[in-house]
């Protein structure tokens, strides 16, 4: 035993610090998350520990239900949108053409803008008296009038959530694009040529060859992006503060109402929602890929 330890001392010394750091924090976070979620707070002071009343209060509160539905809509909209925009941009630059490198770099730009900065630009553009309001009320000569009166985007639930979705898609499309591009580049050209000699048109080649061969990349995009969407905080927090999603509700309870118990309870429910959603996605994707490769 001791001999073994000595032999592997380098291994142990190199791995131990990182493992202790991560596993230590993992345990602390998990423990406190659970403990906080089982503790009730009144006026910022802990009252009872070891009770599940936080969960019960939450499930019965309309604020939580509203936040859940908003989050669900956020997930169900932003995830497929990112898949589509990612796929379109990936296919656009999967061709070799003059200036491809530049186009690719520009399309990657959103990744290089800090998230909070993206939200601040959107606030500037969509706030009252900003460019978009002026554009839609026909104040610029090159664009027709769409609305009679300027509306406040961030005070309208549909627009505010829509804006948050737009920001999220704008910022994260490059990630989907890169994943999908890697998938596209792994499909050999002769697959398409073989299909062409057998009479396959562009659309058919896309459905029968590109899509099924891209299933792993698509799955990866859908899973990663939907997890991201469930836990999204910054975009809805800045752009739709009056219409909280679950992430924003955590902040509301924690910062505004000084009630970490409720925050932790939502945090734990969020983890379970993500797990369920990922499992459902996996089942659906497996069924879809089976359907596409039938005889």
């Amino acid at each position: 035993m001791l001999k073994n330890l000595k032999k592997n001392s380098f291994l142990i010394w190199s791995l131990a610090p990182a493992c202790i750091f991560i596993i230590g924090f993992f345990v602390i976070i998990a423990f406190f998350l659970l403990k906080l979620s089982l503790t009730t707070y009144v006026g910022g002071m802990p009252q009872e520990t070891g009770v599940i009343s936080n969960y019960i209060t939450l499930i019965n509160s309309s604020a939580f239900k509203d936040a859940f539905w908003r989050t669900l809509i956020f997930v169900l909209t932003s995830t497929p949108l990112q898949l589509i925009t990612g796929l379109i941009t990936a296919m656009l630059i999967n061709k070799s053409f003059h200036g491809r490198g530049v186009v690719r770099s520009v399309l990657l730009l959103p990744l290089a803008i800090p998230t909070i900065v993206t939200t601040s630009i959107l606030v500037l553009m969509f706030s009252k008296g900003g460019h978009i309001g002026s554009l839609l009320t026909g104040q610029y000569s090159f664009f027709p009038q769409v609305m009679a009166k300027e509306i406040s985007f961030m005070n309208n639930e549909a627009f505010a959530i829509g804006l948050a979705i737009f920001g999220k898609v704008w910022r994260d499309t490059p990630i989907s694009m890169l994943i999908l591009l890697a998938g596209l580049q792994q499909i050999p050209q002769d697959q398409y040529e073989a299909a062409e000699t057998m009479g396959s048109k562009l659309v058919q080649s896309f459905t029968y060859i590109t899509l099924p061969l891209m299933i792993p990349s698509i799955a990866s995009v859908l899973v990663l992006r939907s997890v991201e969407a469930w836990k999204e905080f910054i975009f809805p927090y800045i752009l739709a503060p009056s219409f909280p999603v679950l992430g924003v509700l955590i902040e509301n309870f924690y910062v505004q109402q000084l009630n970490p118990g409720m925050s932790a309870a939502i945090g734990i429910m969020l983890i379970f929602l993500i797990l369920i959603c990922t499992w459902v996605l996996k089942v659906v994707l497996e069924a879809a890929s089976k359907f596409l490769v039938k005889v």
């Binding site: 040529e193 890929s289 005889v295």
Partner: peptide, 25 residues
């Protein structure tokens, strides 16, 4: 009809689906 040097078989389809692809189209 053409047979490619790399065969260009569709890796995600069964043998039957591969052979039947042209007919399906």
């Amino acid at each position: 009809a053409m047979v490619f040097q790399s065969y260009a078989l569709f890796p995600h389809m069964s043998v039957e689906a591969n052979v039947g692809f042209g007919l399906k189209i």
